[in-house]
Design a protein around this nucleic acid. Structure first.
Length: 277
DNA sequence: AAGACGAAAGTGGTTGA
DNA sequence: TCAACAACTTTCGTCTT
């Protein structure tokens, strides 16, 4: 997906045809659709056709029709046979719903599903709302895939309020000992650099400034967009050719001028660069 | 006149008791 | 649940180009 305009450049590169190559792992020994974490039984279940006809298309006798009806019902029951499975089934449905509403890529959905499975295995759901933990799983996946600006958008499509999501998020973080890195300001640089019409060298300069800042650890607990804004302003001062006023960056990136000032001065200080006149 | 600067006061979110 | 706190915002007077 193009980082600037959101255009989908290439889609669905995976060959879903049967794969008979190897014998060493489960998925290579069977044909059919690939294993997925997004269905509670990983996509391995069987369906009984809803049509009351045999393989040749002839309709079944009424005795056989009612037999098939009973078989179908039992098949459905076994599919979600105990409480855990039903829990999972519901939660994965929620995850899928939110992911669709947010337009998340498939990889992020898979991550969220895996996280939720782990939470279930660790018995973290008992006594908590399924929806809260499911939302938090999405938030974790969001963060791990480096998608910027998550929580507000997430709580907009979630059925639980922001507070609960945050609480469950921290719970997952702690109990599953996930490595949550602070959001990376570099994720914002590319997009805004092109919106400001900056050249590549300016953009790289901004990223370089942020790299040393990260090394000196001044980026933690600061708004990543504010850091990106400061870096872009500083980079534009250091490079010839591009120019933008604080007011313009402030307007575009929704960060106050004052914050841009403090950020860019900190960034220059961290990089041992004197204020250019 | 435009842009940059920084002090002061206020806001919403996080943290630890 | 509450107070303390850091980050951030808004506003405004001053300085520089």
């Amino acid at each position: 997906v193009c980082e600037d305009c959101g255009l989908v450049v290439e889609e669905d590169r995976i060959d879903r045809g049967p794969d008979w190559r190897g014998f060493d792992d489960e998925s290579s020994q069977r044909g059919g659709r690939p294993l997925t974490e997004q269905l509670h039984d990983r996509g391995l279940s069987t369906d009984i056709d809803w049509r009351d006809s045999d393989a040749n298309g002839n309709t079944l006798s009424s005795a056989k029709q009612s037999k098939m009806k009973r078989l179908r019902r039992w098949n459905e029951r076994f599919r979600a046979k105990d409480a855990l499975d039903r829990n999972l089934k519901f939660a994965l449905g929620e995850i899928s719903r939110m992911a669709s509403a947010l337009g998340l890529p498939d990889a992020t959905r898979e991550t969220a599903s895996v996280i939720y499975r782990r939470a279930l295995e660790e018995d973290l759901i008992r006594g908590r709302s399924i929806e809260g933990v499911a939302s938090a799983a999405v938030a974790v996946a969001y963060r791990q895939h480096g998608v910027p600006h998550s929580l507000d958008e997430l709580s907009a499509v979630s059925r639980v309020d922001r507070q609960r999501i945050v609480r469950a998020f921290r719970l997952l973080n702690r109990e599953l000992s996930l490595e949550i890195t602070p959001p990376d300001p570099c994720n914002h640089v590319t997009r805004y650099a092109s919106e400001l019409g900056f050249s590549n060298s300016t953009e790289q300069r901004a990223n370089a400034l942020l790299e040393t800042a990260k090394a000196e650890n001044i980026h933690s607990s600061k708004n990543p967009i504010a850091l990106a804004a400061g870096a872009l302003y500083a980079a534009q001062l250091l490079e010839d050719g591009d120019h933008a006023t604080q007011a313009r960056i402030s307007d575009l990136m929704d960060i106050s001028e004052v914050t841009i000032r403090t950020r860019y001065q900190q960034l220059l200080a961290a990089n041992d660069i004197p204020l250019p006149r």
